[in-house]
Nucleic acid binder design. Structure first.
Lengths: 365, 365
DNA sequence: CTTAGCACTCAGAGATAACGAGTGCTAAGA
DNA sequence: TCTTAGCACTCGTTATCTCTGAGTGCTAAG
């Protein structure tokens, strides 16, 4: 069944009011809001109805109403208006984005910190490969005596190397042969394709350098695993303490101690078509995390990788604003790193309850 | 002036009792402890005296006493008995230490996490070079057309590389020349020795590849800087919430928000002879951090690097136990990474108040 | 020098009362 | 039929007060 326009309006007002104050909102408060042309009694009746529908909750009999997870869900899916970043905001975001981008992992921690700071909530960043990684080319380089450097060029344009001590006397010729064999047999293969049979074959062709094959393969395996593997960078956990719902230390501690990298890496990633995803409440995030929601978005890092940045916060968070900032971030990062194909950003345009006016939907406080 | 033996005994008892309970301790509590053969009145007198000396503090008139920072200082310097790790503890420490050690930075975060978990307090880890890093050798490696790989072997045994696109047509001969020039002029030099004059000279000798010199130098500078630079890995901040002194969220938040990598990196490192250092209270740590102390210890990572692991906690922390665990850690890590030269560990043997007996000084709770 | 005794202090725990925000329901009005 | 003013009722919050007891400093006797 569908809500009436008035019920939607009231639900929206309640969510936004609660987001701001973190306190149960009463019928009078809503009635007093501009644009509300009904009496508090009418609103009370509607609120009772919304409560029956499971969209609102009542902490106790004589308190105001609080949105339920379902209520939030409806809000973010249908009612939320897109928050427009102000000049100031885009400016400071741009400024912050001007980080010296080094390696991907460093970049990710920086991005995580940044997002956390901008939203004043814990944030995380992950990079994951959208394509599999393979070795594109091997090079063996004599270093000092008894040493050579194994250089491995990957399909991701990155180059890895290792200094290997020779267990036995080998000539430059032997290394040349090994190099040729490796390049002939082990390039452009996924990790799973490195079967024992294949390796045995390679070893047989490697002549005097056969004993080096396992060493090389170990390194390759390690590198490919490492490259494939994605680590979660979680920062700013303590910002949760600023939120009123965590003013009880016991609660805060409980949440903070469960909120670790493991939890994060088990969150469902946004599916294909929509880069932005909002997980509302314990059912969608993790049941240990009461009153906690997650907003995340995908972005393009280039080189066959995609990044994921997310923000963790109380279910009562300003989804509109967080979403806007996150999307802007993702878009900018995509532009900086990606191959130009910018991802679509922002939540889908909300169905407007009133004809869109020129003013910014939200006040900044 | 020197304290009497009885005063020391009482101070020690007070500190240890307070460490355990986190509540001001009264004269009766002390009098009731085994080994205390004086009445509570006597102890009251002594406590008054210790208060005069600034070693104890009284939260309010009718409360028990709490050690002052000076009191702690005296305790850790003179009174603290070495905590002996139990079988169980060494066992689980050893188990935890069996981490797959990869790169130094990964290792450090792991160590930080581990220490944090073992002490149930925030912990940090830093690596810093005790020797300066230099480039030991350059290699230039033709990759695909218009591309070559710059390989740089460092004095730390690690090897860095970069894929460089050629801005112009160059023959393998040109690269050979460049390589020779680089190896002749730019090896074994500290970062500061890379003067503009030197670089100009190199450029002149580089023939056709002159335009590549700046690219190479940029990379070298970046690598050396990166290698020299030491990052602080701070983890487990939220464990502070478990401590009773931070049961007030406002306080916790204040501490947690000041406790960042900057603060940590400004802490004084342990000086030459003693690897372990204890910083007590705000004066010694940071004035923003009320009631906070730091215990840190140095360890050897090998390859001319040394590590620093530290624990941040309330001034009322179990120094004996934290110290013991940290030292054990440092020792084990030193053994795993270091060149065999184990650092001396543990606080210097305390002057015993009573002849040392066979039993474990502390009870484990 | 030690210790028993005593009067005094003061934070914290409960108990009680007053407050007020918010509700549901009813009945009158549009 | 929908809206709204009015009202009794609920119940968490806050303030005030008292009471309790741990702990102190001081004094005087052992």
């Amino acid at each position: 069944m569908e809500l009436t326009a008035r019920q939607k309006l009231i639900l929206k007002a309640i969510v936004e009011c609660y987001v701001e104050t973190a306190e149960p909102v009463g019928s009078k408060t809503i009635a007093a809001m501009p644009g509300m042309d009904f009496s508090s009694a009418t609103i009370r009746n509607e609120m009772a109805e919304l409560t029956n529908l499971g969209l609102l909750e009542q902490p106790h009999t004589s308190a105001g109403r609080v949105p339920s997870p379902d209520g939030y869900r409806l809000y973010v899916d249908e009612l939320m208006q897109q928050y427009r970043l102000s000049e100031d905001e885009t400016h400071s975001l741009n400024e912050a984005l001007d980080l010296k981008m080094k390696k991907v992992d460093r970049m990710l921690t920086d991005v995580g910190k940044l997002v956390s700071r901008m939203t004043d909530l814990p944030a995380y960043a992950v990079a994951s490969r959208s394509r599999t990684v393979t070795v594109r080319r091997f090079e063996l380089l004599m270093a000092e005596t008894h040493c050579f450097i194994l250089v491995v060029m990957l399909s991701t344009e990155s180059v890895k190397n290792k200094l290997i001590k020779l267990p036995l006397e080998l000539t430059e010729q032997d290394l040349k042969l090994l190099s040729a064999v490796l390049n002939a047999s082990l390039t452009d293969l996924e990790l799973t394709a490195l079967t024992p049979e294949l390796l045995a074959k390679v070893e047989r062709s490697a002549g005097a350098a056969a004993s080096l094959v396992p060493v090389v393969v170990d390194f390759v395996t390690a590198v490919l695993t490492e490259e494939q593997h994605s680590e979660v960078y979680l920062t700013g956990q303590t910002r949760l303490l600023g939120q009123p719902e965590y003013h009880d230390v016991a609660k805060a501690q409980q949440v903070l101690s469960t909120l670790d990298e493991d939890i994060i890496s088990n969150l469902p990633a946004p599916t294909g078509d929509k880069p932005l995803q909002i997980l509302v409440g314990p059912e969608e995030v993790a049941k240990e995390l009461k009153d906690t929601s997650v907003v995340m978005t995908r972005f393009d890092i280039g080189d066959g990788m995609e990044g994921l940045i997310g923000v963790v916060g109380p279910t009562r968070m300003d989804y509109a604003r967080v979403t806007a900032r996150l999307s802007y971030f993702a878009e900018s990062l995509g532009r900086m790193f990606g191959k130009g194909e910018t991802l679509p950003v922002g939540p889908e345009p909300p169905r407007q309850l009133k004809p869109p006016s020129g003013e910014t939907p939200h006040e900044d406080n």
